[in-house]
Amino acid sequence: MSYNVTVDAEKCVGCSECVDVCPVEVYELQNEKSVPVNEEECLGCESCIEVCEHDAITVEEA
Rank of each mutant, 00 (worst) to 15 (best):
P23D: 01
Q30K: 12
V35S: 00
L43A: 02
E46T: 10
V13R: 14
Y27F: 15
D8V: 09
C52H: 10
V35W: 04
G44Q: 02
C42D: 00
C12L: 08
V19E: 07
S16R: 15
A9C: 05
C45Y: 02
E17S: 10
N4Y: 06
V59F: 10
Q30N: 00
V51E: 03
Q30L: 13
V51L: 06
V13E: 03
E53Q: 12
E17L: 14
S16W: 12
E40Y: 10
D20H: 15
V19P: 14
V13K: 15
M1G: 11
E17T: 12
I57T: 03
L29C: 02
A56Q: 04
V21N: 01
E41V: 01
I57M: 04
M1Q: 04
E53W: 13
C22P: 07
H54C: 08
E40P: 08
S2K: 11
K33F: 09
G14Y: 11
V5C: 04
V5K: 02
P23Y: 08
P36A: 02
E41D: 00
V13I: 15
I49M: 03
E25D: 05
V21D: 00
M1E: 03
E39F: 04
C18P: 00
E39G: 04
E61L: 11
C15R: 08
V7C: 05
K11R: 12
C12Q: 05
E50I: 12
H54M: 15
I57W: 05
E32A: 03
G14L: 05
V59L: 09
K33A: 05
V24M: 07
V26T: 05
C45K: 00
A56C: 08
E32P: 04
H54R: 11
E17Q: 14
E32V: 06
E28P: 07
A9Y: 13
D55Q: 07
C22R: 11
V35K: 07
V26I: 09
S34L: 07
T6R: 12
E10Y: 13
S34Q: 04
H54E: 15
C15P: 14
T6I: 15
V21C: 06
C52S: 08
E32G: 02
E10K: 13
M1W: 06
